[in-house]
């Protein structure tokens, strides 16, 4: 939730051209639909599966599009506007396509005092992204700063998609990235 006069954080994603125009193929069919229906049985309301449904959507498409939100809204009996309100509240749903590898570097104070800003620099340089929130020209990487990842004793924690890496230093960044090509 970036807002107000200090909205200077690095978490804002910058939309990249392309991708957006592809027509939306429904996600909730077959096994995915069955998985969603099973989830619904765990709660007294349908709406309670909104966060899980958005996760499934993002897993299938790499990001959460407006058409995808509309599909979820129809399934759960809520409005697309309501779904968008929820999507924009949470930082982990991508409202634009991102690089093949989405890299989140923790820079909150506990990691900051251990040199996390240098880790960010190393990622921006080695990936060629240059700037936070921008996807590299080859579409491979997007780097953002993230607020506390909850692994402060293993500074600096970094997430690459769903991989959770610990104790990353500027020196280990090139070796790590070699695993994500």
């Amino acid at each position: 939730m970036s807002h107000g006069p200090s909205a200077s954080g690095g978490a804002t994603l910058k939309p990249s051209p392309g991708h957006h125009d592809a027509p939306h193929e429904p996600v909730f069919t077959g096994a995915t639909r069955a998985a969603l229906d099973e989830l619904i049985t765990r709660y007294p309301t349908k709406q309670a599966v909104l966060l899980p449904a958005l996760w499934m959507l993002q897993e299938a498409r790499g990001w959460v599009s407006e058409a995808g939100m509309a599909e979820v809204a129809a399934l759960l009996g809520i409005t697309p506007a309501y779904v968008k309100g929820v999507v924009t509240f949470y930082t982990m749903y991508h409202q634009h396509p991102v690089g093949k590898y989405f890299i989140q570097v923790c820079t909150t104070s506990p990691c900051n005092v251990c040199g996390a800003e240098d880790v960010v620099k190393a990622f921006l340089e080695t990936t060629g992204c240059g700037e936070l929130g921008v996807t590299s020209d080859d579409g491979r990487y997007t780097v953002i700063e993230v607020e506390c990842l909850g692994a402060c004793g293993f500074a600096t924690p970094v997430m690459v998609n769903s991989d959770f890496l610990e104790s990353v230093t500027p020196d280990t960044v090139p070796g790590l990235l070699a695993r994500y090509q």
Binding site: G4, G9, F89, S109, N112
Partner: peptide, 16 residues
């Protein structure tokens, strides 16, 4: 610097 960084954390996380 660290106090400013903490403040930025809370600004980012405020539900507003």
């Amino acid at each position: 610097k660290q106090i400013a960084r903490l403040a930025r954390f809370y600004a980012h996380e405020s539900c507003a």
